[in-house]
């Protein structure tokens, strides 16, 4: 069996993987998680089963690498991890900042499904939850995002 050049994998899925990383992390950390993801994928690529969905595989690695970065960060901070500063009242949040204010489970469900493109069944497998639970978390998350980002409109 033959494999496409890894460059074509990066070209086809690089943007999606970055969105997943950026939705879970600040930009410098997202950049690190992006290259952590593709480095791990490059290592495993020649042995990857041929029936594997490439994008599901990459999004799953990206999620894991993002969590690794968050854990490393948490260990570096003495005591409680400080909340990100809240923006001034009445200001619209951009999507990245609004996502950072979602509860973890909602954020992960929204990111994996809406930005990563994973079906809910796969999101459930990644998050070790049920399909119904992640579907609910995702729709609650999207509703919360709309509220957070609604801001000044109307």
């Amino acid at each position: 069996m033959t494999r496409a050049p890894f460059e074509t994998i990066v070209a086809a899925h690089g943007a999606r993987v970055w969105r997943v990383c950026r939705a879970l992390l600040d930009e410098p950390d997202a950049d690190d998680a992006w290259s952590d993801t593709f480095l791990a994928a490059l290592e495993a690529y020649p042995r990857l089963r041929h029936d594997t969905s490439i994008e599901g595989w990459l999004v799953t690695i990206a999620h894991r690498k993002a969590i690794d970065v968050l854990r490393r960060r948490a260990r570096l901070v003495v005591g409680d991890v400080p909340e990100r500063p809240a923006p001034p009242e009445g200001r619209d949040l951009d999507l990245a900042r609004a996502l950072s204010r979602l509860p973890t489970r909602q954020r992960e469900a929204v990111v994996l499904h809406h930005l990563g493109g994973l079906p809910f069944a796969e999101v459930a497998a990644v998050l070790e939850s049920s399909t119904d639970a992640v579907r609910r978390a995702s729709s609650d998350g999207v509703r919360r995002l709309r509220a957070l980002m609604g801001g000044d409109h109307g």
Binding site: G14, W18, R19, D94, L95, A96, L115, V142, L145
Partner: peptide, 8 residues
């Protein structure tokens, strides 16, 4: 989703 992330 409301809004979008910046371009990578």
């Amino acid at each position: 989703l409301p809004g979008a992330l910046p371009a990578p």
